[in-house]
Write a protein that binds this DNA or RNA. Structure first.
Lengths: 181, 181
DNA sequence: GGGCACATGTAAGCTGTTACATGATTAA
DNA sequence: TTAATCATGTAACAGCTTACATGTGCCC
């Protein structure tokens, strides 16, 4: 019952780095965690309100149409620690690219080639993006203590993107062989 | 609006290989597409009923509490082809492992190590599973024309799993360094 | 004065899972 | 005969996105 709310974990986690407004939480998640996480306003604001009600967050600043900054209370930090320790509830895989390729016989070889080329371009862009993140972090003075952990996630993205590139090249060769019959 | 139903695509795709009951569709998706796709009964049965109503599927066999086998009509096959050509609507990434590692400073190095070791074991099991799938396909006489495409998805899984293994080893070394300070 | 980034929220709706309910067929 | 597998469905609900509604503050 009530399996762990991952949105709650993400919001508490963001606020564990520094106090922020809801808008800033969204921006932080989009820009920093963007390659492996997403939260929408529709999740963030209700979550903030609820966590504040439960005493897990403090709220500072203009109640009325201003900038309300949230920060973790002691209870909030304890709750985050507890959530992080919960086992993952892995949401079932759903890979639209592989589903299409699986039915490649219906789709046709040419369309498969296009899909794989698009995946390759996407992986290249991701690699460039990871390089940019590394460069930004290298010049960043704040949050040094977090950096080793943040870099683990960047590295995971890079390994994944490189694997996609290698698979795409191999796959394009295979598909060309199929096209030639 | 009404972005492409991927469940519909999966169901039509399964039936494009051969006619099946709803139960068999579920089993086929679970066992064959399981490493990159999932559908639950709650999706499959309503989808089958709807597609039959729309004339995309034929239904044979016991209406009443028996085995109702569905097969693609000509319109159904055309619909599948059309769906496969729709652009992917990539659902936002959500990687619970990376989210936890990102907040590794709150979680602690030891717990991070455990998470990564679990991920490694999981990747090893996936590799073994892919080997089993390859072995099964090698002895399988049916569906030969599909095999080249099916193997593309297996290869994608293998590349991903090997990337996870390499990342996990690198990460465990990094974490040991952090623990030693 | 206009546009843009910052900021806060809500409502509707979709997608999909989980749990339940029920029954037939087959193999040990 | 009993257990497992095959088989069909539904109801409740969780989770999340999208679109909308509204407003402020700042810079050009």
């Amino acid at each position: 019952m009530a399996r762990v709310s991952q949105s709650e974990m993400a919001v508490l986690g963001a606020l564990s780095v520094r106090p922020m407004t809801g808008y800033a939480v969204r921006e932080a998640i989009r820009t920093v965690l963007g390659h492996f996480w997403n939260e929408s306003y529709g999740q963030i604001y209700p979550t903030l309100t609820r966590l504040h009600t439960e005493g897990l967050l403090d709220r500072h600043g203009g109640e009325r149409s201003g900038s309300m900054t949230y920060s973790l209370t002691t209870a909030g930090r304890a709750r985050l620690s507890e959530l992080l320790r919960q086992p993952e509830s892995p949401r079932p895989e759903r890979n639209g690219l592989l589903l299409r390729l699986f039915f490649g016989r219906e789709l046709g070889v040419d369309a498969c080639v296009e899909l794989v080329q698009a995946a390759k371009v996407d992986a290249e862009q991701r690699l460039a993006n990871y390089a940019a993140i590394r460069a930004t972090m290298a010049t960043e003075e704040e949050d040094r203590a977090h950096h080793p952990f943040w870099l683990l996630t960047v590295s995971a993205g890079e390994h994944g993107a490189r694997a996609t590139l290698a698979w795409a090249d191999e796959t394009l060769r295979t598909l060309r062989g199929l096209a030639a019959n």
